[in-house]
Structure formats: C-alpha cells, structure tokens
Design a protein around this nucleic acid. Sequence first.
RNA 1: CGGGAUGUAGCGCAAUUUGGUAGCGCACCUGUUUUGGGUACAGGGGGUUGCAGGUUCAAAUCCUGUCAUCCCGACCA
Length: 587
Amino acid sequence: MPIRLSQLFLRTLREDPADAEVNSHRLLVRAGYIRRAAPGIYTWLPLGLAVKAKIEQVVREEMAAAGAQEVFFPALLPREPYEATGRWTEYGDNLFRLQDRKKADYLLAPTHEEMFTLLVKDLYSSYKDLPVCLYQIQNKYRDEARPRAGLLRGREFVMKDAYSFDVTDEGLQASYQAQRDAYERIFKRLSVDYVIVKADAGAMGGSASEEFLSPSPIGEDTFVRSPGGYAANVEAVVTVAPAEQDPNSQSPAVVHPSPNTPTIETLVALANRDVPRADGRQWAAADTLKNVVLALTSPEGKREIVVVGLPGDREVDAKRAEAAFSPNEVEPATEADFAANPELVKGYIGPVKGSTKVLGLDGTSKLRYLLDPRVVNGTAWITGANISEQHVFDLVKGRDFDADGVIDIAEVRAGDPAPDGSGPLELARGIEIGHVFQLGRKYAEALGLQVLDENGKLVTVTMGSYGIGVTRLMAVLAEANNDEKGLIWPESVSPADIYVVAAGKDDVVYQTAEKLVADLEAKGKSVIFDDRVKVSPGVKFGDAELIGVPNIVIVGKGLENGEVDLWNRRTGERRAVRLDSAVAELV
RNA sequence: CGGGAUGUAGCGCAAUUUGGUAGCGCACCUGUUUUGGGUACAGGGGGUUGCAGGUUCAAAUCCUGUCAUCCCGACCA
C-alpha cells in the first residue's frame, strides 16, 4: 500500500526550528521525520522510521553475508557484569543508572561487550564452536555531557554492535577483516563517503583499531590524510622523528641569564637580542624545548605529575594526551602541584645538564620525564635551567640530557610529514560512523570466557567488537544530501522509491495518479502518494522537495497531452513522458 | 564543569528599555475562492508569559531565587 499524504501522520514546518543548527537536524525536524523528546532524545515519526528501517536492512543483509547472526539484548541491564569489568565505575557520569523497587542497581546499556561475552560463555565451551560472530541493532544510552546536532550525538541512539569470538589471534584477524569488508560494502551501498583511519585503542584496551569517518565540516573528529593514502585519526597519528645526529658535533651547552622570559615568545626575543647565532639565522620557537607539566589521574584516583618536553612551537593536544595516557585523566598541573614539587621552576623548567634523565637542579627529582619524538639524539635546544630567569643554550639530547621515554602528544599540523613518507599531511574533519576493533582477551579474561582447545586445555577466547551508528548514519546521510529546499535521499535509504504528486483538481488527475501508483506498486516499487485534495500545487511541490524522495512523478496538467512529468529531485530536471511509458521508465 | 544566549499559543517571533492586564505570521477550524510553485478574502478556536517568592493599586515587563533549553569550550567505546 502506498503512503498517502492525506492519511500520513505528518506535519511539515515552513520555518526552521529555533534549536536546530545543522542542516540534518533542521531538515529532519522540518520534514517530519523526527521530533525532539528531550535533549539528545528523539521520537521517530513514520517517515523517520522508514529511513531507519532501510539503513538497518542494508546492515542486516551485509552482516548475514559476513556470517554474523542477529541476537537482541535488553537495554536495561543489571550492574554486576559491568562491575566485573570495572566499567560501572569507569563510565562515570556517562552511564544512565537506575534502581529497581528493591534498590538493586541497573543501567541503560551504553554498549554490550559484557553481555555478549557472557552469552557466549553461557552457551559455548569448546573450540569447535568457534569462531562465532554475533550482532544486534539496538538502542544505546549514554548520558553525554553535551548532546548536539540532533541525531548526530544523542543520548539515546541506535547502534549495530557486533562481536567476534575466536580461539586464535589469526582467527581474530580473519573475523576483523570480514567485518571490515562488510562495513565497506554497507557504506558503499548507502552511498556514504567514508575514510578508514587508524584509531587509538584508547580505554577499550586491545590492539588494532580503525574508524570509519565520513568527511564533514561539522564532524567532531579530526583526521589526517597523506598523498600516499595514509589516514589516521589525529589522536593516533604517529610523528615522524628526524634523523639522529652526532651529539658531540654540537656546541657546548651554556647557561645565559634570561630575565622576564616566562613564555616561549619572550624567550625567543631575548635569544635573538642577546645570543646571536653563529650561522646568522634567527632563533625561532622551534629551537626551544618547552617542558609542560601534566597531572595524570588514574581510574583509582592516584595522581602523578609528569613532565613532557616538546619543541616550543608545538602545543600539547588534549585529545592526543588523553589517548596516550589512557586510562588516566590528563589535566595541566595546578599551582598546588607546583608547590608540591619545588624542583619545577615555573617558566624555567628543563632537563638538567649532565643528568641522565631526572629533572631539577639537584638531579634528584623522581618525576617522569617524557620527550616528543622530534627530540632525538644530537638535537640542540634552548631550554630552562631550572633556575628562575636562566636558560640553557645548546643543551643536546643524548649528550646533556635524556628522558624516561617518548610520548607523542604534540598537536598535529597540516604539512607535517606523513608516516608513510609520501608527503605532507592534510587535516580534515569527519563524523565517526563505524569502528572496528580487535579487543583481544580483555573482556574474556575479566568475565572468564574460556573454551577447551583440541588438547582439552582451557584457553581464553579473543574478541573483536564492531560498531555502526545507525541513527548517526541517518544524520550523516541527511547532512550530505540536501539543498536549500530540503532533503535529497540516496535511493538506497529513501523512505519510498517514488513520490507521486497529484497536482490539479479534476477527478481524472486523481484517478490517473491512483492507477499509476497501483501500477508502480505492482512492479514492486514503494510509493509516497500526495493525494491531498484542496492543497495547492505549490504546497505539494514544496513538501515533495522537503521530504526528499529522489524520484518524483507529477500527474497534472500534462494529462491533457497524455503525459506526466518525471522530476529528478537531485538535479531538478523535469521531463514529460507518455503516461503509458511512465511505469516502464520508473522501474 | 567554564563562557555566552534564550525561555511569551503546536512552530517562528513581537510587546520587557519606559509596569496598565498579551499581539503578529505560519499551522489548526468554518465558509467562499484558487489549482503547475507555499492563492485570496471573511469569520473562529487556542496562553495560569518556564517555575516559586517579592515589590506595586496594577507585573510578560522591576527584584530575588530556581529550573530548563540552545550554542562555544572541556568531556565523549
């Protein structure tokens, strides 16, 4: 049966909702696909459900093709499994928690690793049962600090989450690849632009991880691309270290007084005034070694102060730092931290000349000192002398100082060399629409998922997790497919195949349109039929454009010549065709 | 959590500066009209002005508190 606009539960809005900023949000509300129920929580109207179902159908078909089987968990879950993996605490305020009448703790699931792991543990206990891959399409709940942009970041959203279970690492590789391939097919079928980027493993633990980002200026993720095809989330970009040099070929380190130089700018200015370079080049911020003091807080609440040395022209990227120090929280050190560590002379911190790695004037500090990958052996730096208003020049890594390790948390800039050596990196924004992840044995260990191998020995299962944001995908599709008039769905997700407008007041128009609709449906096409009488053509055309079905047929005044108009929503092209050949053209 | 803005009819807004008892457009209902680009006219229904206190003869408007929403940032498998 066609969807009849005379009957459809729908009210299109002529004006933009005041609370919607981005196009997808604006248009999905205006065109009557969704309504806001609470911040980041949306009610689905018939048109919205139709599009969501289309996306889910594609996902289901490709999951089946990849050998994954569908299950369905409750969204309302008891506390215990999440307690076992530590995530009841780790998730913090992002978890929706509630209690039943007996005051037992429950949560609305933000993701289902625990439940899938326990389900497989419940049913399977032999290597012969594996590998297995399960998935569900289900509502997830996260109490985001700031939901935004309609469906793009909601507090309730639909996710397809799949989990693979293997005995061996090679098996996990194969399962991962199967899901990754399925994702490529899904996004291609849905006509979504995507880039596969290396992702940071982050708090999920595990090793290999890739994100599917859809490039978009409103994206919340920043990623890099190289001419040679390297792509990574900015959190996961690996900095290319310059070649090492002979430390002993450099000039000896010298301490210079540097009054009133608490910042890099003031320091560079003073250096150019008081300490001209032998080669005549001007000192630059990149010649200085900036030492940033960070406070790490572990999930257990333990606080550690670390000092990170990086070139003075680079800032610490908060996201990269968070990722690199995960699961610790990272924040700049406070005044209290400095007070507790008097060897840190604010504005004049540096690795001590002659020490191996420790910081501080007397060389006894126990603080960890980590260096940016650009600070390689043989490089010379201007840096703090750990005495107020004094800096060291030509302090050489490998000769005068060393560190406890390398940490790659400096901001990534467009133009930085790509790790694949193919040229400069380009920066772009993207929306995360999928994530494939080799979890490894973290959850299986925490929850005791073991099977017997062919030797009758218990082995821990290794897992992968694979997510697609279904409702976010819908927002991405709406975002990428619209114009000033409204939405323009790709055919693969359009709420109907054909949109038929009866434009006119004569009965024959409606009778002819009715017949055309029936013929189209007989050929297997789904149809939205604007059969509203007493609605002017202008309104009907406007709604057709707003709703965004790509193929529109107008049955109206052309009938005098036995013709109807085929209207391509995307190109705007209208073409008159013989009524009797219209169906053939459309199927 | 920090910064900014806003809460008035289903939606978009005005009236707040200067207190006088709430108005416009869209949507909705009735009638006539119009039918290939949101037709025109006439009539109509719908509001405890976010909430709670206070000042005042009188509060959407002034004062205090509170709640909520949106945007930027922080945060975010």
